[in-house]
Simulated assay, not measured.
Amino acid sequence: MIENLDVNQYLPEAIAWATNLLLAIVILMIGIWLANKASRIIVNVGKKYDNLDDTLFRFFGSVARYVVLAFVGIAVLNRFGVQTASIVALLGAAGLAIGLALQGAMSNLAAGVMLLIFRPYKVGDFINAAGRFGNVTEVDMFTTILQTFDKQQIIIPNSQIWGEQIVNHSHYKLRGVDMHFGVAYNANIDSARAVIEKVLADHPSVLKDPAPFIEVETLNDSSVDFLVRPFCDGADYFNVLYSVPELVKKALDEANIEIPFPHRKVFLVNETN
């Protein structure tokens, strides 16, 4: 009789514990499913639209997943009577301490989020940023990686890029390439212009439309300076920039048009006593 009484005494507690365990398992399973579902939905939004960055939405998906799992963990602990208020306060304090310790990393993260939202550049673009120039090979949450023409890899923290001037050389399909050429004052300006026009007309990467801009810009001390702006596809910008000056120099030499250089005239006066 006493043994039956003891069993009956602990039976409700055992049932309550088993019920809480089953509910905790159900909450955990549903929570994991919801966390994965929320992550997939956010990631798929980034994949659905070309103007949205996959990296950013993968990050947001991971954040959403862990946030849901955190709430699931709190709900599971509540089923077992654990006071979660102190745990939440402890996690908040720990998060604050970690945030203060990782201020630099957090600033890079915040800058990375802004770069991925506004997308001033993307992988494959040539940019000037943080005093560096190169081809963007990777943009992640903390850094931007550039490859220079001489095959160096430059890793720039995003906080050094965001908020500073960013020059994206690949943003527009067409590019104007500004150049300056000087001829001597005794040279025929129309002849010099014709020589430059022919060089640009024969260049395979210079576009006919829009037409190149060739005009006298400055009358310097020893030269008449032309501003020359041919237009090309963005991919051909550096080819035009570094090939046209040599071609113009050779063409002006063949036409016997002098390209002057700064010089001084010195007059010697012979003073006799």
Rank of each mutant, 00 (worst) to 15 (best):
L146Y: 02
L146F: 07
T148F: 10
T148C: 10
F149H: 13
D150I: 09
K151R: 14
Q152Y: 12
Q152W: 07
Q152H: 15
I154T: 07
I154A: 09
I155W: 00
I155S: 10
I155P: 05
I156W: 04
S159A: 15
I161E: 02
W162D: 12
W162Y: 15
W162S: 06
W162G: 04
E164V: 08
I166E: 06
I166F: 03
I166K: 00
I166A: 08
N168A: 10
N168G: 10
H169V: 08
S170H: 02
K173N: 14
K173E: 15
R175A: 15
G176F: 07
D178G: 12
D178R: 12
H180R: 07
F181A: 02
F181L: 08
G182H: 05
G182F: 01
Y185D: 11
Y185T: 01
Y185H: 13
N188D: 14
I189N: 05
I189F: 04
I189S: 06
D190E: 15
D190T: 15
D190Y: 04
D190P: 01
S191H: 12
A192I: 06
A192Y: 01
R193Q: 15
R193Y: 11
A194D: 10
A194G: 10
V195I: 10
E197A: 13
E197I: 06
E197F: 04
K198Q: 15
K198M: 12
L200Q: 00
L200F: 04
A201K: 13
D202T: 03
D202V: 05
H203Y: 04
P204N: 09
P204A: 12
P204I: 01
S205T: 08
V206Y: 02
L207Q: 00
L207T: 02
D209V: 14
D209C: 13
D209A: 14
D209E: 15
P210I: 11
A211N: 07
P212C: 11
P212A: 04
I214H: 03
I214F: 03
E215H: 05
V216K: 06
L219A: 05
N220M: 15
D221C: 09
S222N: 11
S223K: 04
S223I: 01
V224S: 11
V224K: 06
V224D: 03
V224G: 04
D225S: 13
D225V: 14
F226S: 04
F226T: 02
L227Y: 04
V228S: 00
R229L: 09
F231D: 07
F231A: 05
C232P: 02
C232L: 06
D233A: 11
G234L: 01
A235R: 12
Y237E: 07
Y237P: 00
Y237V: 06
N239P: 09
N239H: 08
N239L: 13
Y242L: 09
Y242M: 10
Y242T: 08
S243H: 01
V244F: 09
V244G: 03
P245H: 03
P245D: 02
L247A: 13
K249N: 14
K249V: 10
K249P: 03
K250W: 08
K250F: 07
K250E: 14
A251G: 08
A251P: 00
L252N: 01
L252Y: 00
D253P: 00
D253K: 11
D253Y: 07
D253V: 08
E254T: 09
E254C: 05
E254Q: 14
E254H: 06
N256S: 12
I257H: 02
E258A: 13
P260W: 10
F261R: 12
F261K: 10
P262Y: 08
H263F: 12
H263E: 13
H263W: 10
R264I: 11
